[in-house]
Amino acid sequence: MLAYIVRRAFQSFVVLLVVGLVAFSMFRFVGDPIDNMLGQERTQADIERLRGELGLDLPFPVQYFKFLQGAAQGNFGVSYRQGRPVSTIIKERAPATLELALVSGVLAITVGIGLGVFTAIRRRGFAANAIMTISLVGVSLPTFLIGILLIYVFSVELNLLPSFGRGETVMIGGWSTGFLTASGLKALILPAITLGLYQMTLIMRLVRSEMLEVLRADYIRFARARGLNDRVINFRHALKNTLVPVITITGLQLGSIIAFAIITETVFQWPGVGLLFINAIQFVDIPVMAAYLMLISVMFVSINLIVDLLYYAIDPRLRTEGKTT
């Protein structure tokens, strides 16, 4: 087991290195940061000097190596635009994104699994079919449109919820949280729904189809023949067996909740890392982009590792080496 984790960690490390390399090879196509950093009245000498100072005249593998050197010591460089260390900036911004992702992830999983089980059990019922039809909307509407619609209905027309920002936040040991104030919680609702709706409908449809499959299995028939009640059969025997494939997809989806928070954050002007990244691209702020991309890949890689470990937790067949007696 430990050997497995070590092996996976090593693989993850290689993945991170490759992601970084690809990222660095792309940066030169984003634009020239010097254009933005120096004003109209720049001389060729200024340009050369700044380029030299930032190390942009080096070939990209060397730039990448220098970045890695710094990153290994926890130093991700200084933002071109803000002139502050990137790690400080990300530390300020990360709580907003993580809280948003957490809320929409929990929302997507609980509501998604709940509705999935419901629509599978009441397959022929009116409510289940209505939910299935409505869920198509969730799958097919693009995120930004949902966000704008929600803002229009709940902020503009009904004036119930704020249309942008995080509301008031409270600092707890360097972590700014919006969970503890009424306005912070209110501000979370619309972005969380916007971000989680697609994942929610996806999980729901996945749980439903897996569940329908499992409910036909012999051990479910046998469980009925043993006289167990429906609640035990549906939620203990059937649901647990649907989880393995569901976890795979859900894990990947949770990764993309964080990664694709960019769009939601833009629509709601949510002060998170996604918005930071968008601004960084506009300004060709290479250190910020590099750090963000690395952060996202660490996130994906560790979610994948957790998913694989969860398989072990759920399915005993993977735990014991295939011995039968």
Partner: peptide, 17 residues
């Protein structure tokens, strides 16, 4: 009334002891 099914490989839930 109890029942015994044909295929012992599939009539037990694999995820429970």
């Amino acid at each position: 009334i109890s029942m015994i099914f044909q295929d012992p490989l599939t009539s037990l839930n694999p995820l429970f002891t």
